[in-house]
Amino acid sequence: MKLLYFAWLRERIGRAEEDLAPPAEVADVARLIDWLKARGPGYAAAFADLRVVRVAVNQDYVPVDHPVRAGDEVAFFPPVTGGSA
């Protein structure tokens, strides 16, 4: 599974992307977040407030109950701030 982190999530976790193989019981986004939080304080800090974390699986926005599986590209990032005034 390819994991991508953007903006302050990338800074807190300390990397932009990584390839990980979570165990089979990590079957949806919510369980993936719980599993990642246990990997270290940077991850715990990045996922401390899920109200300001958005998730995309294979480049589409998804809710946290969306399934994840091997081979997926899963991205975590803050609410977007493109465009202009």
């Binding site: 977007v80 701030t81 493109g82 465009g83």
Partner: peptide, 8 residues
């Protein structure tokens, strides 16, 4: 695009 395009 302000709410959907992934820019920060």
């Amino acid at each position: 695009l302000k709410t959907k395009a992934p820019f920060w």
